[in-house]
């Protein structure tokens, strides 16, 4: 009888909801109870430094190109020591969707995401973070990588002294 199975179905549903009434709620009372997000949580973005203390960001613009909401902008410049770095670097967190594509795109591991998600403010302009707000004094998640050691051009070390490099060619040498 279809009607009986229908009624049974109704009662099954009622029984399930009845059981759920006595379960412990999953709610976390946010401001009082806080959950520590996992280290790979995607929230506030930082710019890290390499193990030698130099800025990792070379302002290559890949993060701003990858950003789907165009919240990253920067101006590269050349430092006196020949490093490429950001003259200014701006992330508009009011626009950021924390997708993590910038961190994924970053070839020098400079831009990283932290679990700090509590960055709300009253004034929306306070969410426009400049380089001084973003730059931290640490390596973040990857503590050993220094882009310039592997770049293959002499910036932080004399030419030909980087990892996996031969000394510069003597073009005036006569040996074959």
């Amino acid at each position: 009888m279809k009607i009986l199975s229908d009624i049974a179905a109704l009662l099954t549903g009622m029984w399930i909801t009845w059981k759920h009434m006595f379960r412990r709620p999953v709610t976390i009372q946010y401001p009082e109870e806080k959950r520590q997000p996992y280290p790979r949580y995607r929230a506030r973005i930082v710019l890290t430094r390499d193990p030698d203390g130099g800025e990792r960001c070379v302002a290559c613009q890949l993060c701003s190109a990858a950003c789907p909401v165009d919240c990253i902008s920067m101006q590269p410049t050349e430092d006196t020591d020949g490093r490429r770095s950001a003259e200014w670097f701006r992330i508009n967190f009011a626009r950021c969707i924390f997708c993590g594509l910038c961190a994924e795109a970053c070839p020098t591991l400079a831009i990283q995401m932290t679990p700090d998600f509590e960055i709300c403010t009253r004034d929306i302009m306070d969410l426009v973070y400049e380089k001084e707000d973003l730059l931290i004094d640490g390596c973040g998640k990857s503590s050993h990588y220094n882009f310039y050691r592997h770049a293959g051009i002499g910036v932080t070390q004399p030419r030909g002294n980087g990892a996996e490099e031969l000394p510069p060619v003597d073009v005036r040498g006569l040996l074959p």
């Binding site: 909801t17 759920h20 009434m21 006595f22 379960r23 412990r24 709620p25 999953v26 709610t27 009372q29």
Partner: peptide
């Protein structure tokens, strides 16, 4: 309240 309990909320 009851709906919340049914849905495992507070």
């Amino acid at each position: 309240k009851v709906l919340a309990w049914i849905q495992d909320r507070k």
